[in-house]
Design a protein around this nucleic acid. Structure first.
Lengths: 220, 220
DNA sequence: ACCGTTGCTGAGGATGTGCTGAGGGTTTCG
DNA sequence: CGAAACCCTCAGCACATCCTCAGCAACGGT
């Protein structure tokens, strides 16, 4: 489930740019030009995070911040052209989770958005290859909705391969990365690839391909 | 109970000034000049918030940040003279809760400290996992309406796990976070997990799952 | 088509990892 | 001061997982 972000910003170019950047970063985004119907939007869309411009026509960002705090538990980031310490203090005291000053680099805004989401526990680092998802923190693997149970070694192997999806990985490389050996040992890798395939292919077509003479690739 | 703040900063004047300012603002403060014995300090003092200078003799702030994230639930604010966007991004990506650039106005630092504390209170006062509720402040645990009585150690363990719901937590990590040990000691963790399960599962299905070879997860 | 090389897979014993009941030392509380 | 609760250690059991082995299949160059 992707995190939902609500953006309220009157300047059209910024609103669009932020919307696109956040969407590309893998979030679900909804944008608005002013604070009209803000309460309804909060209730319906249930965002995990709200990005609020401070200077808005009608109700300003501080007012909306208060509303958001009272009626939801979304995180809030304020967005403003002003740079005085007083405004920053005001924003933080009112309870914003973060504060970004215009003009800002888009990459930093994204980083702050994700920092707040991560802190709230709404962001996971998930590696995806085709319909396969590898959640490293939860140590969980899903394919097409189904949860796949892996042993410790199988998971290490898959995580390593998923981390370099589309790239061919040699057996020696796998042995050092997963087992810590520095020389070749029997057919260890083959045995584990075999086991991994059996579990993975119970829920779909082959993802872990053999590249004869070189190693293995993970791709769809 | 006043919030505890741990300050790690090598420059003496700043360390003192920050210490005094935070104390006057009503916090319990402890200061250190470097990262030596940081793990022990975390385990003993159990700060709610850690202020870390990025440029420290010995281990730098980023390193300490990682340690703090792994073994405590404390919030973290980075404190630095550098102002490059790259450093800010690095700090936020690594998971800092906030980032203050020197030179800073003391009032702003205090405001940020309190913003982070407030945010943590809002997010962490009652942790919920499935039908389980862990109220950290009241030191109470409920499941499906029934109150569950836990010993001090059991509660610490559960609270730590609940703070990282859905994430796999290693035994070593638990030992440092809950017991303050830095190396593996017998099967302490297993014994307490066992006891915790008995109490938790008297009111519902398993929530505290074993992930063989990795650790434990709390999820429904 | 042949044959050496490379890769696949099922089986099984050794090992590792986790679970639990019991008990002694210590602290807390009445 | 005594009892209860609690913390930690220990030891035995259960079983999942790891790795080796051996035979078979697939591939590709000649």
């Amino acid at each position: 489930m992707r995190p939902r972000v609500l953006v309220v910003e009157d300047a059209e170019p910024i609103r669009t740019a932020v919307g696109i950047a956040l969407t590309e970063a893998g979030h679900d985004v909804r944008t608005r030009a002013d604070g009209a119907g803000f309460e309804r939007e909060l209730a319906e869309y249930r965002p995990d995070l709200v990005l609020l411009d401070v200077m808005l026509p009608g109700r300003d960002g501080f007012e909306l911040l208060t509303v958001a705090r009272e009626t939801s538990n979304a995180g809030v980031i304020l967005l403003t052209a002003r740079d005085g310490v007083d405004d920053r203090l005001h924003g933080l005291r009112t309870g914003a989770d973060d504060y970004v000053v215009k003009p800002f680099v888009l990459a930093e805004l994204i980083a702050r958005v994700e920092a707040v989401l991560r802190r709230m526990g709404r962001l996971r680092s998930v590696l995806a290859v085709g319909d396969l998802e590898v959640d490293v923190e939860a140590r969980a693997v899903r394919r097409g909705g189904a949860e796949i149970e892996l042993t410790a070694t199988e998971f290490k192997l898959l995580a390593f391969l998923a981390g370099r999806a589309e790239k061919v990985v040699g057996k020696t490389q796998l042995l050092t990365a997963v087992w810590g050996y520095d020389d070749y040992a029997d057919n260890l890798v083959e045995v584990y690839v075999s086991g991994l395939r059996r579990k993975l292919e119970a829920h779909g077509p082959r993802l872990l391909h053999t590249v004869r003479g070189s190693g293995y690739v993970l791709r769809s």
